[in-house]
Design a protein around this nucleic acid. Structure first.
Lengths: 114, 114
DNA sequence: TTCTTATTGCAATTAGGTTGCAATAAGAAA
DNA sequence: TTTCTTATTGCAACCTAATTGCAATAAGAA
């Protein structure tokens, strides 16, 4: 599982992971390893526009700065989701304290747009 | 149901709606009325950070500009979600065409922060 | 080896959401 | 009003993501 995320820059849905490891590893085990790896700061999770849970390898994340979320980009054609290594300014709102923002940009990836 | 959204500026999760109308209306009916009202441009939906489906009354939405999504704000203490009538700039990405952004700001609302 | 702890598999369960179908309500036409 | 047609609702069953309990196994330490 570690190896699976090692050289992957895009995110994977849990459903795809369970499917990928079918025969090799039980569904429940996949879920458990994922939450363990997330707790250790190796991967991070977020829920896609479909409401499914997605996981991706952490690059600059540490155990501590794990929740400094970065934006994600999803291709509406092929469904692919990737992490964006940009940081967008968190807007100020009056009478509210904002400390996190969850951003999902949707469009077409390089492959699907051409 | 129309009345329910009429004077409400915050969003409601489907789970809460089903609970609210229990005894008065079947779960399936709640779901069906909601998707009908969404198709008519009266309300709009999005999925919260928990992966649940939320609905809120449309203010400037029309049947057509229904998908000009606006950001939402969620209080991490009480869980309340509200629509923000601000528009944030959609960032440009190289090699990708971005046409929508789903934004959820998370923090503390006025009531919970004080 | 023996004891203890962590990991895994399997079955069952919970929960959000959908579908099929029959029953009822609501309108239009006669 | 009566009849025909269409839309709305309730109920049971189902689908799928995710979780839990528990026994079985693997892994480490004493």
């Amino acid at each position: 599982m570690q190896r699976y995320f090692g050289d992957r820059s895009t995110a994977v849905s849990v459903v795809d992971l369970v499917e990928h490891f079918r025969g090799e590893m039980n569904k429940v085990t996949v879920y458990r390893i994922l939450s363990r790896m997330e707790a250790e700061g190796i991967i991070h999770s977020f829920s896609g526009s479909d409401g499914l849970k997605w996981y991706a390898a952490c690059k600059q994340c540490t155990n501590h700065s794990h929740y400094d979320h970065h934006p994600h980009f999803q291709c509406k054609v092929c469904g692919m989701i990737e992490c964006l290594e940009i940081s967008l300014p968190i807007p100020k709102l009056k009478n509210r304290k904002v400390d996190t923002e969850i951003i999902l940009l949707i469009g077409e990836c390089e492959t699907c747009a051409s």
